[in-house]
Amino acid sequence: MDKVNIDVGLLEPILLEFRDQKGAVIPILQRAQDLYGYLPEEAMIEIAEKSRISISQLYGIATFYAQFNLEPRGRHIISICDGTACHVRGAPKLVTAVEDKLNLVAGGSDPDYNYTLEIVYCLGSCGLAPIALVNGQVYGNTTPDSLVEKVMDLD
């Protein structure tokens, strides 16, 4: 994907809010990701400079935590839980069904960045396994068919 020009000025209020707070780099990254959908390199450089952490360390932190994406993500995010309860209740079949339908590989996006499929470990609703999250909306007791149907209903 080509480099997108992003407005690093949008980071200013976030950096201001956390200025002088010890160990605030993780919440800053979280807020920055909320802003851009991922963590573009330009934003990382700005955060490193303003919060006085070396760029190497900032990347070390961002790559450690699963929550942070250094690549852009699709317009629609489908997360399938493969926590233990969901796993024994058939989560792998959900993954295969969505992968086949959208022609992508779990953990990635389709070439047009319309969809991103993620595997997550436990959303804490194991009683309703298997669980899937479509654009933040939780669905319990899903089947391959019901999930694919929901995904196809997305614009």
Partner: peptide, 23 residues
Amino acid sequence: KEGAGAFVCGEETALIASIEGKR
């Protein structure tokens, strides 16, 4: 403090490192 997706942060010294803004 919100975690950022790392199971190992349930270990207390890792959790503390995470609150301190480290890996």
